[in-house]
């Protein structure tokens, strides 16, 4: 992965693949995401992001809907 700065997941267009770099929502947030497959270094794919409302991602064979606010707290590196 390049040294580019991580961007909020909520800003990625659909069908982008990315890797989680940082979780900025505190321990309870990180704890909830961990059980659903989202931890630092997790690869994921944005399935849907229409620019408002929740974001849909695919991570470890699981489709997860994230509120926009939640998605903004997940910082990722977009794959080329």
């Amino acid at each position: 992965m390049s040294a580019r700065t991580a961007v909020p997941l909520s800003e990625l267009p659909p069908h982008t693949k990315a890797v989680v770099r940082r979780l900025a929502g505190g321990r309870p947030f990180a704890g909830r995401l961990a059980g659903m497959g989202v931890v630092v270094d997790s690869p994921l794919e944005v399935l849907q992001n229409v620019g408002h409302g929740p974001v849909l991602i695919l991570v470890r064979d699981t489709r997860i809907a994230l509120g926009r606010g939640e998605a903004a707290k997940i910082l990722v590196d977009a794959a080329a």
């Binding site: 995401l33 489709r63 809907a65 994230l66 509120g67 606010g69």
Partner: peptide, 8 residues
């Protein structure tokens, strides 16, 4: 509550 939900 954070909206984090699995779509099975």
């Amino acid at each position: 509550a954070a909206f984090i939900m699995e779509l099975p």
